[in-house]
Design a protein around this nucleic acid. Structure first.
Length: 299
DNA sequence: CTATTAATAT
DNA sequence: TATATTAATA
């Protein structure tokens, strides 16, 4: 149980899910064929289901923004919602509701890491969202989660000075799993718990926006012909894990209809992952469309 | 406009 | 339940 308080960030990188492990909002569990069949956006443009109903503010960068890199940075483009592909989705692309976001432990971990690196001061929904670079995440998603997360921290401050250790069967104790089992799965940086302002430097790591992934394109190729699933070696081994990340999303190609993917969320087995998760019991209403950012998994 | 928060809705 | 949405406020 000896761990330096300065230990948690020594490994934050390692704990971040490698890009290969992340899954874009657009193709969670659908097989590539299915995705294509439904014309669910081409990953060529990493832009994803950002079909924001109405507002979609833009052109307002005050904080750091991901550099356009080598892309022509077309700024933004209003996707002409060209509907017409009958198949079931003919509703006005505006006013579309996206499925509820499921905060998997990994996604939450990215969230926590982002907050940790931003520092409490800068950890506001917009910046967190940007830092997380998770495609499909909206500011409201983060805001909602942040609200709950702050309440969780508050609750915990009063109980114990060291709390976060609950992950995976260590010391569970102070709080009921029923109340917040998600938050307990992720290590909470010490600074969160005490208001000790870090006036001088709040951020530590220079932040590496998702290491690896050197070649910027091949995104599309990767998804159909997945070379091979490395590092996992799942016995079954026929799963693709494309990439994720919003990163450089600007890169328009053709305007196609924006298809929100509704995912039935039928996961069978987790090839490499740790724990298999069963929803269904959580769905009292039966069939609810749920967005799974990336596969559930624990460290 | 964005952030925060409480209340409410699904 | 967990997450979304709304309204009031800063």
């Amino acid at each position: 149980m000896r761990e330096d308080d300065s230990n948690w960030f020594s490994r934050w990188e390692e704990q971040l899910p490698p890009p290969e492990e992340l899954m874009p909002l657009s193709q969670t569990l659908i097989t590539p064929d299915l995705a294509i069949a439904f014309d669910i956006r081409n990953p060529h443009t990493t832009n994803t289901i950002n079909a924001n109903p109405q507002h979609q503010q833009h052109h307002q960068q005050q904080q750091q923004q991901p550099p356009p890199s080598s892309l022509p940075s077309s700024t933004d483009f209003a996707d002409s919602g060209e509907l017409g592909s009958g198949t079931a989705g003919e509703e006005p692309a505006r006013t579309l509701k996206r499925p509820r976001l499921v905060w998997t432990p990994q996604l939450h971990k990215r969230f926590v890491d982002a907050v940790a690196h931003l520092g409490i001061k800068n950890a506001v929904p917009k910046t967190i969202m940007q830092l997380m670079s998770v495609d499909g995440l909206t500011r409201e998603n983060v805001a909602s989660h942040l609200q709950k997360y702050r309440l969780y921290l508050k609750r915990m401050q009063g109980i114990s000075s060291a709390g976060g250790g609950g992950s995976g069967g260590g010391s569970v104790g102070v709080n009921d799993p029923a109340t917040d089992h998600l938050f307990a799965s992720s290590p909470v940086p010490p600074h969160f718990l005490h208001p000790v302002a870090r006036p001088n430097s709040d951020h530590y790591m220079p932040f590496v926006p998702v290491p690896a992934i050197h070649h910027q394109q091949q995104l599309a190729a990767a998804q159909y012909h997945r070379p091979v699933g490395h590092f996992g070696s799942p016995p079954n081994g026929h799963f693709d894990n494309p990439f994720l990340s919003r990163q450089q999303q600007h890169q328009q190609q053709h305007q196609h209809q924006q298809q929100l993917h509704r995912i039935g969320a039928q996961m069978h087995h987790n090839p490499v992952g740790g724990y298999v998760e069963d929803m269904e019991s959580a769905n009292a209403s039966g069939g609810r469309k749920v967005l799974t950012l990336f596969p559930t998994g624990d460290d």
